[in-house]
Simulated assay, not measured.
Amino acid sequence: MSYTVNCSILLTELPLWERPAAAKAAGFDNVEFWWPFAESVPADRDVAAFERAITDAGVQLTGLNFNAGDMPAGDRGLVSWKGRCSEFKDNIDVVAGIGERLGCKAFNALYGNRQDGCTPEEQDELAVKNLAAAAEGVARIGGTVLLEPVSGAPAYPLLTAADALAVIDRVRAASGARNIKLLADFYHLAVNGDDVEAVIENHAKDFGHIQIADNPGRGAPGSGQLPLDEWITRSRELGYEGCIGLEYKAPQAEAFAWAVRERSDAR
């Protein structure tokens, strides 16, 4: 199984730039990150430090978020956020540059919370324009924009696969962009009450990426009750060929115990 470690939510006991090497030491060759900077256009030296952390660790960056705002404070993306459009647009070139230098092709664009003082229609119209711009910006490096439903954020409007797919259809109709796909996070979909099995049956071959965590607790695979192995296997059977993103919460000491067991069982 080809896994990729989300170094923004895992290995948090370590400084951010040390986490790719820790993922490698734990036996993984791939990593992904949320946007690892405080601003949309970070200093060149900070970008270089991030890139060195990846290359020095000998891992492949498989996924990177666009700037999503202040995530700890509750922000969930700039795509539909009126008043911060220039920040998102400026971020596109930086993201594409990192992707080009590190060979990363998948870029997650969090949609953004609903705002007081703006109608949903106004935000959705802006989101279509911004997603089209993002798709155009990463197309030059063969990149794909990902859009995901999210749980645990009451003001975030994309809760189900159908919600995200409707936006993707709007972007494609408005711009002709084909390089925008669903990020199927099985944890978020399950917590939001979506029919994960049906989503897989209908859309697995077109998934842009899969991420996993168990429920309850957003813990490691096997810590809860979700049939993650079954869902992954079925997605593979139906044509999904990408990595499986490990985006769960667990202390470093026990974060990958399930993977060690899985490797042992495979021998």
Rank of each mutant, 00 (worst) to 15 (best):
W81Q: 08
K249T: 07
F66M: 05
A49Q: 08
C104E: 04
G99D: 01
I244R: 09
H203Y: 14
K181P: 06
S223D: 13
L238N: 01
D29Q: 06
W34I: 02
V171T: 03
T12K: 11
A198Y: 13
G245P: 01
H203C: 09
G83K: 12
L228R: 01
E241S: 09
G152W: 05
A198Q: 15
R267H: 15
F33P: 04
F37R: 03
D214N: 11
N130R: 12
I200G: 05
S40A: 15
F28D: 04
V31G: 02
T144S: 14
E136P: 03
R140A: 11
D44P: 08
N30G: 11
W34V: 00
I54P: 07
A253L: 03
E136I: 05
P157I: 06
A253K: 00
L238C: 01
V167D: 08
D169S: 13
R218M: 11
C7I: 13
V5T: 13
A57T: 04
E230D: 14
I54K: 11
A38H: 10
I92A: 11
F66G: 01
R52A: 15
N108G: 06
I210S: 10
I212M: 06
G99Q: 05
P221W: 06
K249H: 13
F66C: 03
A198M: 12
V41T: 09
A155N: 12
A174T: 03
N91F: 04
V167T: 13
S151N: 05
A127E: 06
E121T: 09
M71P: 02
A68R: 01
W35G: 05
Y156Q: 14
Y3V: 02
A21W: 00
F107P: 02
V167F: 07
R263F: 13
R140N: 06
E121C: 04
A48M: 07
L16D: 09
A190S: 12
D214W: 00
W231F: 14
H188P: 01
A132W: 00
D29H: 07
N113F: 15
E262Y: 10
A166M: 13
R170A: 02
A162K: 08
G74W: 13
H209Y: 14
A153F: 15
P15N: 03
Q252A: 14
F107D: 03
T144H: 11
A38R: 13
R45K: 06
A53K: 03
G63K: 02
P154S: 00
R19I: 03
A153Q: 07
R234W: 02
P120Y: 08
L238M: 10
R45P: 00
M1E: 09
V145T: 03
W231M: 09
I210F: 13
G97K: 12
N91S: 15
A49L: 08
G137D: 07
V196A: 14
H209L: 05
Y3P: 00
P149C: 10
G63L: 14
H203E: 14
V41L: 00
N91H: 10
V94S: 03
N65W: 08
A162W: 10
T12W: 05
G152S: 06
H203K: 11
F207N: 07
A213W: 02
A259D: 07
E100G: 06
